[in-house]
Write a protein that binds this DNA or RNA. Structure first.
Lengths: 230, 230
DNA sequence: GAAAACTAGGTACACCGTACCCGGTTGTCC
DNA sequence: GGACAACCGGGTACGGTGTACCTAGTTTTC
């Protein structure tokens, strides 16, 4: 955790920040699976094992990456006073950050950042619902439910996109490949609502941002209704 | 996709179902990372490469596992008429299934099942909100938001448990190891709400099931309020 | 100048998914 | 009954992975 110059020994050839930056560049462009210690070493022009002078292992690299991205949607240090707007903005900015870094959602779904920026985000999210007359347990549950929705929604969203990217196909080619299986499902007649989805979906809530916000607003409605003030 | 006896050739020594069962046994007991083609082959007493007669690759094995677990929380084929109770039950049973299979949440967070049981679950979830005067797009958004909450919540929940399991430590040992970092965070004074969490959390909503249900009920409240009938 | 504390990084090990291939078994058809 | 297609089991091999361990060089302190 200390990128600073130690007392003795030669000057380090690079820094944890440079390593993190290289890892982000690779993962953003080629996906999380493109990250390997050998690859990262090649990227910054060092020997593979030298990386272990800066991080304790690959997991540590991932932690650094997550914490770096967490900084991108850090809420302002002082809440606006409108808890709903603040929570909504945090959710939307979190999603946008995960869209900029398509590998992010898969990681944060199962492991939230315990680095400085992760903790800061958590603290500021709690501060958004502070002063509403809630116990810390309820505050935690409310913030947690919004995080759960955002992480769950975006993980599903990006999971599909990343799976598509891995195939190397475009959307048309992919749909053409799925067509026979889809046909079988529809022809069986056992899935009338799924058939309706295929036939008539997309008239409303066609914009992905709008779809995300729709569910988010339902959740925020429910939270608002449970608040002491009404 | 065809475990049936083919026309020619020797009788297969095992079946996709047996392979799936072995994979579930290993993953449930030792985690998803314990699943390897060599390990599975050893488990069912076959050569490694023979598995490829039954599945196209490791991803296919995972798909089979997910679809098998999906059968565990398949909603009844006819909704009760109480959409809220049905959606709530689906969420709770989905979570319970993911608790029985700790590896499941990590997988479904980014890749929903497109196998028979996955499609059936999807169809029946939609049928729960059918007949309420909603367009298929809104139905999709509502079901999707509940899925997002459940997947997001349980993925975070299980992610923590699985991370703990991987260390091999028990809760006390793990907390003792984190203590110095925690101390630093608290001593800095920059995280007063986080400090409150550490100090006073657990008085309300101490039961994990209750915590999960609390957020879920907020979401369902918000959905109820948006329904045409009120 | 010696020693301590750090640095870079090569080698090696155990494991992974799976492409490719060979040889054996079974059913069908002439 | 013989030929052959179609399938099965599975060994070998390749190009990857994370990282433990070790050697050797460099800088600072005493």
């Amino acid at each position: 955790m200390r990128p600073e110059r130690p007392a003795r020994g030669p000057r380090p050839a690079f820094s944890r920040a440079q390593l993190t930056e290289a890892a982000l560049r690779v993962a953003d462009a080629e996906g999380l699976d493109a990250i390997s210690m050998r690859r990262l070493a090649a990227e910054i022009g060092s020997g593979t094992m030298s990386l272990y002078r800066y991080v304790s292992g690959k997991d540590d690299v991932i932690d650094l990456m997550v914490d770096a991205v967490s900084a991108e949607f850090l809420p302002p240090d002082v809440p606006s006073g409108d808890w709903r707007a603040d929570l909504r903005a945090l959710a939307i900015q979190g999603r946008q950050a995960m869209h900029r870094h398509p590998w992010m959602a898969r990681v944060t779904a199962t492991r939230q950042s315990s680095g400085p920026n992760g903790v800061r985000t958590f603290e500021r999210a709690l501060s958004v619902v502070d002063g509403l007359g809630l116990s810390i347990d309820v505050m935690l549950a409310l913030v947690g439910s919004v995080f759960a929705y955002v992480n769950g929604y975006v993980a599903a969203e990006m999971g599909e996109l990343e799976a598509l990217r891995r195939t190397g196909l475009d959307v048309q080619q992919w749909m053409a490949r799925q067509a026979p299986y889809l046909e079988t499902l529809l022809k069986s007649g056992d899935h009338p609502l799924f058939a309706r989805v295929v036939a008539e979906s997309g008239r409303e809530l066609a914009d992905p941002d709008e779809r995300f916000a729709y569910g988010l607003d339902r959740l925020l409605d429910g939270i608002a209704a449970a608040l002491p003030g009404g």
